[in-house]
Design a protein around this nucleic acid. Structure first.
Length: 423
RNA sequence: GGAGAGAUGGCAGAGUGGUCGAAUGCGGCGGUCUUGAAAACCGUUGUACCGAAAGGUACCGGGGGUUCGAAUCCCUCUCUCUCCGCCA
């Protein structure tokens, strides 16, 4: 959520920057300012009356003590009529505040100036790439390889739960565990503190990182207890700092967590959902940073370099793209997507998304900090990225490393898998 | 799941209808003293909103109510603790 301070002080500039998202947001922006004007007026009036009735209430006590019954009763009547007025205003103020919140939550984050214009993912800008696209004699998609070597059983998942909940078996399961351990160990080396968070969150947490109110359809719900299964560890990790006031010297805060992630993926269909390409439950190691506003973009670049080091160590061909305005997530100011080439399907698969949210999440979270020696609070910047999501990495590893003799395990993983070949 | 107790500032903890945004202690910050530190002493120390400012308003777990007036009384929700039951 943008702050009113941002909107009121740079109105024209913000509308112009938002237009990079391929949509005109002038209406909600002006609407927000209009409602805020109303809000201020009502608040001013209401405070004035409250001040008067507070004074009156104090005097009534005094008058009773002095035995001035008649005067006291007169003051009482006045106080009652003031109270009715305040009640009306309070109701109006509440309505106005709710309306304001609603309009504000329709306005997405302001794209950074690096965000290219564009409508869809085809307009994303490739920043750099690396690795070598393998030349295979035979292109076999991972679901066939998974079946051939009995690594992943999709049918069994259907039986136990439903589509999108695969069962990993034997070396398939060990490969999962190896990747998780590899990613966590790398994160630790890079200075991230490992967290093992709850996999279930409440409404406040969902609101804090922006999943609620409008994206609840993407989460699995436990309606009886008003809880949600996490779509990503970003939610519990970032919410650790909900309603927190930090000191400037606390920055940067670097957290990492492995978690299962649950997504309903309503509306997905076709070959996109084949095999491991799109699942309802998958595993991911997430990295989160909370940083001083002056340093968040430097941090974003560092996170990109870090994620890049992971795909390089796994020897996967990759490319990094900067998302264009039309593809940029609602809450993000700048996002880099990582894609790895999966040779069996002959496709680029998105395996990570690294974003700077600036103060957009922090505003909802009420995540603030104070500069040393200053009293005033400011909003912190939040960033996060996948490092990495497992399924598509597994898909690429299986497909790219397939040989006549089996599937080769990358060197960095062998210490965790304890085997170097799947055959 | 059953019975009971509780939720107050960074922490501990007073306050049961008016002078309470809240005693006191600890902690934090600033200062005096000191070569430096400790101790002692003095001062200071929540957040948000309205206002150009002066100043005002709200907040004692959340929401609602009673009252001229609520941290204090009532309702409700959430959470914590103790005991019993069940249990990885």
């Amino acid at each position: 959520m943008l702050t009113l301070y941002q909107i009121r002080n740079n109105t024209e500039e913000i509308i112009k920057k938002l237009s990079v998202r391929n949509k005109d947001f002038s209406e909600p922006v002006y609407e927000a300012i209009k409602i805020d004007d109303e809000r201020r007026e009502i608040k001013g009036k209401s405070d004035l009356i409250l001040a008067e009735s507070n004074k009156l209430a104090k005097s009534i006590g005094q008058l009773f003590k002095e035995g001035k019954q008649a005067e006291a009763n007169q003051a009482k009547e006045k106080a009652i009529s003031l109270k009715e007025e305040v009640k009306k205003l309070a109701r109006k103020l509440n309505e106005t505040e709710n309306k304001l919140l609603q309009v504000l939550s329709e306005i997405p984050n302001i794209p950074n100036e690096l965000v290219p214009e564009g409508k869809s993912d085809t307009d994303n800008e490739e920043i750099r790439n690396g690795g070598v696209i393998p030349k295979l004699n035979k292109k076999i998609p991972h679901w066939e390889l998974a079946d051939k070597y009995d690594l992943i059983d999709f049918e069994l998942g259907n039986k136990i739960t439903g589509a999108g909940f695969p069962v990993y078996k034997g070396k398939g399961a060990k490969l999962q565990r190896a990747l998780i351990n590899f990613f966590l160990e790398e994160a630790e080396k890079a200075g991230f503190t490992e967290i093992m968070p709850p996999l279930v969150i409440n409404e406040d947490s969902g609101f804090g990182t922006g999943q609620l109110p409008d994206k609840e359809g993407q989460m699995y719900q436990i309606t009886e207890d008003k809880l949600f299964l996490i779509p990503t560890a970003e939610v519990p990790l970032t919410n650790i700092y909900r309603n927190v006031i930090l000191k400037a010297e606390d920055f940067p805060i670097k957290l990492t967590a492995y978690s299962s992630c649950f997504r309903r993926e309503a509306g997905s269909y076709g070959k996109d959902v084949r095999g491991l390409n799109r699942l309802h439950q998958f595993d991911k190691v997430e990295i989160v940073q909370i940083q001083h506003p002056d340093k968040s973009y430097k941090t974003l670049d560092e996170m990109v370099v870090y994620v890049e080091s992971l795909v390089q160590k796994l020897e996967l061909p990759y490319r990094i793209v900067r998302l264009c305005g039309g593809d940029l997530g609602f809450t993000s100011a700048l996002t880099y997507d990582f894609e790895v080439y999966s040779a069996g399907q002959d496709k680029w698969l998105e395996v990570s998304s690294v974003s700077n949210f600036e103060s957009f999440q922090a505003n909802r979270l009420k995540l603030r900090f104070k500069e040393t020696g200053e009293k005033q609070t400011k909003l912190a910047h939040t960033l996060n990225g996948s490092a990495l999501a497992l399924p598509r990495i597994v898909a690429a590893l299986l497909e790219n490393n397939y040989t006549e003799n089996g599937i080769k395990i990358p060197g960095v993983l062998q210490k965790f898998t304890k085997f170097d070949f799947i055959n």
